[in-house]
Structure formats: C-alpha cells, structure tokens
Design a binder for these strands. Sequence first.
DNA 1: TTTTTTCTTGCAACTCAGTTGCATTTAAGT
DNA 2: ACTTAAATGCAACTGAGTTGCAAGAAAAAA
Lengths: 142, 142
Amino acid sequence: MEDRTKHKVEQLLKSARLRRTKARSDILGALLEAHQPLTREQISERIGACAPNKVTIYRAMETFVAADIVHKAFVQDRTWYFELSHHCTTDQCHPHFSCTSCGRTDCLHELSIPMTADSGGYIIQHQRVQLEGLCPKCSKSA
Amino acid sequence: MEDRTKHKVEQLLKSARLRRTKARSDILGALLEAHQPLTREQISERIGACAPNKVTIYRAMETFVAADIVHKAFVQDRTWYFELSHHCTTDQCHPHFSCTSCGRTDCLHELSIPMTADSGGYIIQHQRVQLEGLCPKCSKSA
DNA sequence: TTTTTTCTTGCAACTCAGTTGCATTTAAGT
DNA sequence: ACTTAAATGCAACTGAGTTGCAAGAAAAAA
Ligand SMILES: [Zn+2]
Ligand SMILES: [Zn+2]
Ligand SMILES: [Zn+2]
Ligand SMILES: [Zn+2]
C-alpha cells in the first residue's frame, strides 16, 4: 500500500471515529487504490495472502456503511459491490453502468439524475441507479 | 382467479408464443392480480396449496423475462421482486421506492427519469432506479 | 506502564435464495 | 392416437452472507 493511501486511510478512520486496526486499514486501502467498486472477494484478493477473514470484511463493511464512508454501490449476480463514498453525497449517488456484452461495470460520476419525487410526499434519502446496455467499446465493435 | 385475469393471462402467453400450462397461468395470474412486485415465495403463497414447485416458478420467470412480459424489478434482502412489464417499455422502467421505516416498496409509475448517458458512447438498454427514504405515511407521522 | 474495559477478529457452523441434473409428465403438431 | 419437444417435480447442490462464541487487540483508566 502506498504512503499516500496509508495516510488517507488513517484520516478516514480517524474522522469517522473508528478504531484503527490492520484489517480495516487494509480493506480501506484496497478500496482506495481500486478506484472502482469491489466485492468482498475482490477485496480479499487485492489484500492477498494475509487478508482478513471474510466475516471480518463483511463486518467492517457494515461499520463503514453505517459511518457513511462506504456505499453499497450495486448488486450483480447476488453479490454486493462496495465503493468509497467520497464521490457521493448521502442522498445523491452516481449511476452504475453494466455492459451486457463484456460484463464490466463503470461508475458514471459525471452523470447526475435529477430526483424530484417529493411531489407525492416521498422523502428520498438515497438513490441507486443501475443502467444496463453496451459500453463505448462494445457499442463501437458491434 | 377472476375471468378477466384468466383471459389476460391467455393473451399474454399467446402473444409471447409460450406454451399454455397450468403453472404459467397461475404464476401470471398471481402477478396480474397483485398489482405490485412479488417474490418467488409470495407468488407461491398467493397461488396456495397447489402452487408449482419453486424451481418451476424460477424457470417460468426466466422464460417470462426473456419474452419481456416480466421484469426483475428490484432486489431486497438478496431476493428478487418480479412484476409484469406492461407498465414499462423495454428501456424505460419506473423507479421503486423502499421505505426505510415501514419497509414497504412502492412502484412510482408516474415518476420518469430522463436518461441521457449516451454522451460518453454508452447505449442504455435498461434502467433500474431504486429509491430509499420515507414513504408519505411515515414522513407524516414522523 | 500496567490494568481494565470495550471493541474487533477468527473459526465453524449455519441460513436461505437460487441453481442443476435427471427422470417423468404434458402441450402441441402430425 | 402417436410423436416430439418442452415443461415440471424432486433431491441434492451452490455460494454469498450471517451468527454465536471464544480469543485477541485498541483505547481508556489507574
Ligand atoms: Zn462492454
Ligand atoms: Zn461508483
Ligand atoms: Zn413507510
Ligand atoms: Zn414496479
């Protein structure tokens, strides 16, 4: 893990008032350096041989989500993808696009969806937008 | 199952060129009369004692989704909710709102989300919008 | 620093929605 | 009625995520 990453991780944990442990640092480090949403298993793989137990990772994610430093971004094949929430506000997250051809999923940070459903009395606290179709690469080669 | 429902079910299967079987009719009937997304288990409950095997229901849903007469609306607690797709076009579906207080999920048929992501070369074939927050009832009593 | 308290971790066993293989039944075309 | 391709039921399986509990590690107190 790079020094810059290490520093950011420390800051994240400190500002969230969470205990600094090796497991949590490694997990946040993996997410920081990935620059994309990861499954629990992908987190393990990125940390490598000394990765924490899967239960520990799931419980860490739960803690991080409660502290609002991690989002459950989307579900694919019954498994959750997690990502750092530093690119979203609490209620306004970015859409995720999954390519039906090559299978990869991109974060569309630049695309924002206007949310105005309070008309009917609904109070939106969080939005999750999942888009499916062809990514730029696959739509060109088609 | 009401006569009207029976008739609609027959039409749905015929227009999709699918074999008319008791299992499929019962499943579509349940979805038609529910007027809301249902899980596999809820479908079984609504059909009752003589409901088809759960495997049959899952396989029927797969067939219906391929034939585009049913949508996988959203996931909640790792289980899929299915609904008839007669209120959506293929690429433009309606958002679903889950109340974090009372737990119920509503279809927001009237709310449409403008989708203009093709800017970056993405071709959107389907959208799934999940909203979370307080429903009208819960936001009033809060 | 040492002690005490509180939170975190690992392990094993479990849960449960959804899937797979295969034998049997049923719808539809002849 | 006969044939064929598709649909169904059952049992066994899969795999992401959870739970209980004992052991270990941070932070707080002494
Ligand atoms: Zn692609
Ligand atoms: Zn993202
Ligand atoms: Zn509510
Ligand atoms: Zn709906």
